[in-house]
C-alpha cells in the first residue's frame, strides 16, 4: 500500500473471530495532508468489518473535527488498506482458536 502519511494499526490482538475490531489511526507525516489535523494524537475506534466501510469512519472523523474535509479520501484509503490486510490475513489464517 502506498504511504499516505497516515498510519492505521490494530489496537488489539486480532483472533479472527469478532466482526468488530479496535483500530488506531494517527498522522505520521502531516505534510501529506491537505488540511491541518486538529491534533497529533492517536485516534482509537472500533470498526465493524462486516457492516461498515472505511469511508463511513473517515466521514465521521471529519464530522468530529479531527481532519479537514479535503483529507477524506486519504483517511479513507489509509483505513481501507489496513482493513484489506486484516481481511487478507483472516482469509489465510482463519480463526486461530477453533
Amino acid at each position: 500500500a502506498e504511504d499516505t502519511g497516515v498510519r492505521v494499526e490494530l489496537a488489539e490482538e486480532d483472533h479472527g473471530r469478532k466482526s468488530s475490531i479496535a483500530l488506531r489511526l494517527w498522522v505520521e507525516d502531516p505534510k501529506k495532508l491537505k488540511g491541518k489535523p486538529k491534533d497529533n494524537g492517536a485516534i482509537e475506534f472500533t470498526f465493524d468489518l462486516e457492516k461498515e466501510t472505511p469511508d463511513d469512519v473517515a466521514q465521521e472523523m471529519i464530522d468530529s473535527g479531527f481532519f479537514h474535509e479535503s483529507d477524506l479520501k486519504i483517511i479513507a484509503k489509509s483505513i481501507r488498506d489496513r482493513v484489506a490486510l486484516i481481511q487478507w490475513r483472516r482469509d489465510r489464517i482463519g480463526p486461530r482458536i477453533q
Binding site: R7, W26, E28, D29, P30, D39, N40, G41, A42, I43, E44, F45, T46, D56, V57, E60, M61, D63, S64, G65, F66
Partner: peptide, 27 residues
C-alpha cells in the same frame, strides 16, 4: 489523564491519546 473521548452523532466513540514519540516520523 491525557486521553480524550469524542462521540460522533452516529454513536461511534473516538478515543484520542498521545502517539508514542517513537512512532512519529521525524518532522
Amino acid at each position: 489523564s491525557s486521553f480524550t473521548q469524542v462521540v460522533h452523532s452516529a454513536g461511534r466513540r473516538f478515543i484520542v491519546s498521545p502517539v508514542p514519540e517513537s512512532r512519529l516520523k521525524e518532522q
